[in-house]
Simulated assay, not measured.
Amino acid sequence: MEREQDQHSSARVVHITTVHQPFDPRIFYKQLASLRDAGFDTHLIAPHDRTEQVQGISIHALPQPTARWRRIAFHPTAFRMAQALNADLYQVHDPELLPVAFLLREATGARIVYDMHENYRAKGPIWGRALRTLERWAFRWVDHVLIAEASYRSIVEDGPVSSTYIPNYFRPIGDARLGAPAKAGHTPTRLLYTGTLSASRGLRTMVELAARIRRAGRPETIDLVGICRYEKQRAWAKARVQEEDLNSILSRVGWDTYVLPSTMPPYYRRADVGLALFEPHPNHRDSIPTKFYEYLHYGLPLICSDVPRWRRFVKQHECGAVVPPGEPEAVLDVLDTWQASPEQYRKYAENARAAASQYRWASVGQRLVDRYRSLLGDGAPERHEGT
């Protein structure tokens, strides 16, 4: 099983997920791509339809489960795949994989990194508490924790583990050319939402927004670009679209199929406004949605739910407006204001583009590479690096 490696070969790193798609932007296009570019031998074990190499990253396919308990059933397979790769470092992206990581540590002696994407404590009193307990157990033995949000520091700072802040900033995927800046007098009519769709992420609000647009004979259209994994929610939305005759207003791209990030840029370029009309779920309060950074890159003013942290972000950059969660009429009020004052809309679009440079992946990717080199070299990592 021992892998031949001379002094000039690169360190092998293996990322493992049973939850995320193989082309998840953070995992594949940001973290693994940065490590590949830095010369690491990069591998990903993830649910996929085939084992292949894509853009220099080796993908090792797990079956694609349809439920959480079935994901857990594939953990032994993930362990065997990972052990056979005999990596220098393993990184897991899901808390439920931490026991697999522990076994890999015992079996191989490799370094172990845990990437904390989400505050799982907010998933409810039973499952959320179980995941948090699992994380706290792992903090006693993992070599390092990456945190996607600065607010997650409070979760790890009292433990013995070191951490690095790796925010989910924007990295161009596919043809990320910018669209033309908003012209004087231009009024926004093309609304866009990208990413996973669900009721907690504003699906109901956006469908009801489309219904109000249709009834009032307004000019706006809405593109929903992403997957909705909940069959009941898809059925509800489909029924509302048919009932209200919304097909000319509401476009659904992906819907029951994962949308590759590389296919999304055309939707950004033709949009006028980026939407994030989330419900006030606890897991949304302490994080900035990745879509904010994407909207800024393409010069799209935001209309988002009035979550305190989001409100501060929008106010800081003067790049949009906040509305009460679950109130589509408030979205129409904002659009009425921008259509009556196109210069205000244009100012927000310009501010969005100007702010985008603060949220690029390049510096963060280098931080990740430096941390990997430290973990695999002689240097000991500093605690809680990054701001």
Rank of each mutant, 00 (worst) to 15 (best):
R80L: 15
R177G: 14
V331A: 02
R177C: 08
Y348H: 14
V364S: 09
F23T: 07
T17R: 04
D88S: 06
G109L: 03
V364I: 15
A138R: 03
P65H: 07
A380I: 10
E2A: 01
Y267I: 09
F278C: 05
E279C: 00
H317R: 13
V225L: 01
G159P: 03
A210H: 10
P181H: 11
Q5M: 00
R234L: 03
H75W: 15
L250D: 05
A73M: 13
E4M: 06
F102V: 04
Y258Q: 10
S341Y: 12
D333V: 14
R190I: 11
P282Q: 12
T17I: 04
F278E: 10
D94W: 07
H43K: 10
D94Q: 08
R234S: 01
N247W: 00
P282M: 11
V314H: 08
R270N: 01
F313T: 07
G179H: 06
R309A: 14
I249S: 04
H93L: 07
C304A: 15
R105A: 08
L197S: 05
A276C: 07
T133C: 00
D272G: 08
A271L: 02
P95S: 12
V307Q: 12
L191K: 03
V161G: 13
H281Y: 13
G185K: 13
L368T: 03
Q91I: 11
T194P: 11
F313G: 10
V314D: 08
P381F: 06
V307M: 13
L275N: 10
F40Q: 05
A11R: 06
L44D: 10
L302W: 02
G226E: 04
R215H: 11
I173K: 02
P266C: 11
D49N: 06
R36S: 14
L134S: 08
P265D: 13
L146G: 01
I72M: 13
A11T: 03
H60Y: 00
L178W: 02
E220D: 15
G124I: 11
I227C: 08
M206D: 07
L275R: 09
E385H: 07
V364Q: 10
W127C: 00
R270Y: 00
G299P: 01
V156K: 03
W361N: 12
